[in-house]
Design a protein around this nucleic acid. Structure first.
Lengths: 227, 227
DNA sequence: ACAATCAGTTACAATTTGATACAGTGATGC
DNA sequence: GCATCACTGTATCAAATTGTAACTGATTGT
């Protein structure tokens, strides 16, 4: 049981989707490029595909009536996103940094028909997603602001960082507001925490969007124990 | 991308599970009863089954080294829990209130072999799980303490409540500490918030574990807008 | 019967985070 | 060139939540 926002049931007693019609073996799925700002789908759209990110960055968001927004996840290279609930997407999805994406038919996820190997791959991606989200729960609920920001930088660094001398550098294509809405903080708090990390000599910002990690060990500490 | 606690990859580039050996059609899965306090599995255990809750309440938890604990979810009747990541469970699972449970083989989730209908049902449960967890993100990150507690009571009420005159009543088999660790609060804050709801005439506690909702409308308001 | 323990509750102080306001910077457009 | 706008960073103050500690009532064991 989770505390869902609407009253829609999360129980297992909902009706099964009608079995899908047979489809001819899928042609080789093609990779397409999407520019920054492009919407891949909106909340409520019929979900025809799940998306595999090859390069670039996507952003999954949900918005409440009162304007409160949550960035559910960022889609980095290697991620598969857009898992549907029933027939519909339940988040919005935008491109944050120009992305190369492979779209897989939803039927490939739901039935093995035509491409059992990809079916398995997508199924396992969904299970891995559940596991990763469970970890993220702990982060949202049990970490302080500075731990959250440090953890975030560490995660991006591990996924997209490249070495520069003894240091590691990476870009943050998303805005401070996106980071705040992802971590459950305000922009001010995110900004404050970046400043502290700079003053402590742990990171350096070449531009607001370019991070240089000066002391990876300290960043790791900061992600686990509060200062 | 999520901010996972360890550095384990959440990317899609991990190796595929070896294809599973053929299994004879599953015999009718039997329902078993588990007493309060029983452990269904621990973090790291090999995952052989996923569990469908028929009656009772389960609790999924993760613990950090420093003692911080997160209750990931409660398993209420209708829920399917214990989705594995790779071969292993990534949470602990305990019985909070004596439960009747049907165990489904993991292979039924991962391959359709033997029981394609249950395979579909489990797959859809996993996708519904992802959606429900995304909603829960917003709750953990963007709701105040009182909104969280009200939302929680509302969710339990909707799932397990029974009418008593014009009111609704239900039991809370989990401790205040469990509720706090589920909502990302402290026990004191949970307790305080219960008291406020009582003083406002929204709920009444016959015992600390038995809730009577006196004003469902007000509880719904409290779950969405802070007082 | 009595002490010990534990869950829950309450009060108060301490701390963190959020809200507000404002300044600096770079991009865009007229 | 200059105004405008979006984004970022900083400081100050207010509000919410946590931490600490004390207290209650129920339960357990001796």
């Amino acid at each position: 049981m989770y505390v869902t926002l609407s009253s829609e049931s999360t129980a297992a007693n909902q009706t099964l989707a009608p079995s899908l019609v047979f489809q001819a073996p899928a042609p080789q799925q093609q990779q397409r490029s999407y520019a920054t700002g492009t919407h891949l789908f909106h909340e409520g759209d019929t979900a025809n595909h799940v998306y595999e990110v090859k390069t670039g960055v996507l952003r999954l968001t949900r918005v409440l009536e009162n304007g409160r927004r949550q960035v559910i996840a960022f889609g980095l290279p290697g991620d598969i996103i857009g898992f549907p609930n029933g027939d519909a997407h339940h988040t919005d999805c935008d491109v944050v940094a120009t992305a190369e994406i492979v779209a897989h038919r939803r039927s490939t996820l739901e039935t093995g028909a035509g491409d059992p190997e990809t079916h398995q791959r997508l199924l396992h991606a969904a299970l891995r997603e559940i596991s990763a989200m469970q970890d993220h729960f702990m982060m949202l609920a049990r970490k302080s602001a500075s731990e959250k920001v440090a953890s975030f930088l560490l995660a991006i660094s591990n996924r997209t960082g490249s070495p520069r001398g003894n240091f590691t550098t990476f870009s943050l294509p998303m805005s401070r507001a996106d980071i705040a809405d992802f971590l459950g903080l305000t922009v001010e708090t995110v900004s404050r925490t970046f400043s502290i990390l700079r003053k402590d000599g742990i990171i350096s910002l070449e531009t607001p969007q370019t991070v240089l990690v000066l002391d990876m060990e300290a960043l790791l500490d900061a992600s686990q124990t509060d200062d």
